[in-house]
Design a protein around this nucleic acid. Structure first.
Lengths: 192, 192
DNA sequence: GTCTATAACTAGATAGAC
DNA sequence: GTCTATCTAGTTATAGAC
């Protein structure tokens, strides 16, 4: 019953952790190898270069996010339900995989041009999914927003930011945080 | 009338730009020197180490943010006025000095322990100023928030995030973005 | 698939001349 | 205050044995 995780997967996991801790250029492959239970040179049996590790990490994370969000949204039917689903998903995904998401959010500048374009294209696809929900809310229910893109960015930044301070042993769980953010986005702070 | 900027200041400015472009560990002092118009070794006449450059940059930025926000808040009197002032200031400061603020927001992990504690203390002081405004709004005007700290983080992340995509030549100016964010925070998206 | 050894290079920091 | 030269250590990546 002990799951044997393939070495390649393990390296990617450890890389996410290490890169988050020390940033991509601040990390070295000897330490990544050590944490993965092998010697420095052996990394190159699994990946062609340090850059390829970063790219695989970010590319896989973006694909996974798009796929999972799309799945969840299939169960939601109104724009408001979809907004709730998205806020919950985005927070949960960032809190559950804080290493992967942090790298994917912050290491874009360290991708070589070709890889950069591929990852940015997926990031834009993801943002577009969220933007379309806000646009639908505006068109169908008169949501108060002039610039869907502006609010999309605000929403994404706010939710992703949770993973920078979230502690599983803290006072609030994911549900409570998501609920608070949905309320904030829906009704704001001022009483009526 | 040509302002001669002291070399030390110039190095700090160029460092902010370079570190934002390539991250702190990804930057090297020879390139920083070149951009500052001197040779590699000359950096050490102005700073004791690469680490000290990073620390001076972040520490000065945090002090400056606290000082300026405090000044502006002195002119605001109600919690709502103070919230407006804070949102506007935080966006404006991040958009006006995107290099300095990006470094200060993202390079904490590369500070040595002693420096880390100093900068985090100032960051916490800043956050506390914002948190106290939200708490006052709750106490005095019944603002709808259970956890002032949670909303403080959401507000700060959302506003700071503007500098990652803001372009001066873009469609929206700082006033319009700040206005939209204040509306979002005040009343949310749903019509009543 | 992993090891060891090493090539080729780069970086932070120092020393001393001007 | 800036220059050049250099020390030392660490890094990615490769090669070939097991």
């Amino acid at each position: 019953m002990t799951e044997t995780i393939p070495r390649r997967e393990l390296i990617l996991q450890e890389a996410a952790h290490l890169f988050r801790e020390k940033s991509y250029p601040g990390s070295n492959l000897r330490e990544l190898a050590r944490r993965s239970g092998i010697q420095g040179g052996s990394i190159y049996h699994h990946f062609a270069s340090k850059q390829e590790i970063l790219f695989q990490l970010m590319d896989h994370t973006m694909s996974d996010m798009i796929e999972r969000l799309t799945e969840r949204l299939a169960e939601a039917h109104t724009p408001l339900e979809k907004l709730r689903t998205t806020v919950y998903f985005h927070i949960e995904y960032h809190v559950t995989g804080p290493d992967q998401t942090y790298i994917t959010d912050e290491e874009l500048r360290n991708l070589e041009p070709e890889n950069y374009l591929k990852v940015v294209a997926k990031r834009d696809r993801y943002q577009r999914i969220v933007e379309d929900i806000l646009s639908a809310g505006k068109a169908e229910h008169g949501w108060l927003l002039d610039e869907p893109k502006l609010y999309t960015r605000a929403l994404i930044k706010m939710c992703a930011g949770v993973s920078t301070w979230f502690k599983p042993e803290g006072e609030l769980n994911i549900e409570q945080i998501a609920e608070a953010y949905i309320n904030l986005f829906s009704n704001g702070l001022l009483p009526r």
